[in-house]
């Protein structure tokens, strides 16, 4: 973000805090797409994800006077991520989704490649690989998935993620590592070579 844009955003935030609905609408509009994409990766795309984002905006607007942080973006992601996770939990309680395996303790394993394939460490932007990554993401435990997305897609640092998900930094570290390793293992299972062992 350019300096001028950053100053514009902070002026908008000040106006929104003082109750200017237009300023809030502009701010929300800047984050709308990224927020929806994030929630859609947690919940799956569709009307539920759209409702979560819209509700998150409404909730943010209602409590914006109490917002004291510096990162409006992190605050929005916090509200939306928690709503998405709550929605998944509610679906599980109603039996609409199967129970997910609990976050295991202990050192996760590094899967071994069945046969030598293209080198995992060198692939980037490979379509097939990205498709595998998407499927692997969808099978991660919800919190792990959310944390991994906040780190590798949205670029938040560990402390921000700890605040967003209201967890300890140690938990964030563990979830990020396990999530990455699970995605890596999925790629190895589909034929990319990892050499760890």
């Amino acid at each position: 973000m350019s300096r001028a844009a950053a100053e514009g955003a902070s002026a908008l935030l000040d106006r929104a805090r003082r109750g200017d609905p237009r300023a809030f609408e502009s701010l929300a509009g800047e984050h709308e797409r990224a927020l929806y994409a994030h929630v859609a990766r947690i919940l799956g795309p569709g009307a539920d994800a759209e409702d979560v984002v819209q509700d998150a905006f409404v909730s943010a607007w209602r409590s914006i006077a109490a917002f004291e942080g510096t990162s409006f973006r992190a605050w929005l992601f916090r509200i939306a991520t928690n709503r998405a996770i709550d929605l998944i939990r509610a679906r599980r309680r109603r039996g609409e989704l199967p129970l997910e395996p609990a976050d295991e303790e202990g050192e996760p394993t590094w899967a071994e490649p069945a046969a030598a394939g293209p080198d995992l460490a060198t692939l980037a932007g490979d379509r097939e690989a990205i498709a595998v990554v998407e499927i692997a993401l969808a099978t991660l435990p919800t919190e792990q998935r959310a944390v991994l997305l906040l780190r590798d897609v949205e670029g938040f640092d560990y402390e921000e993620i700890a605040r967003i998900t209201a967890t300890q930094i140690g938990t964030v570290k563990s979830r990020i590592h396990r999530g990455r390793l699970a995605v890596r293992n999925a790629l190895v299972a589909r034929g990319w070579t990892g050499s760890a062992g």
Partner: peptide, 26 residues
């Protein structure tokens, strides 16, 4: 390998909303 996985994750495509999600406050 972890670095390569993180880079792949960063390129996962973004879904687009089918409508405007910003509530009409004005």
């Amino acid at each position: 390998e972890l670095r390569a996985t993180a880079r792949l994750l960063a390129t996962v495509p973004a879904a687009r909303p089918s409508r405007s999600l910003v509530p009409r406050l004005v």
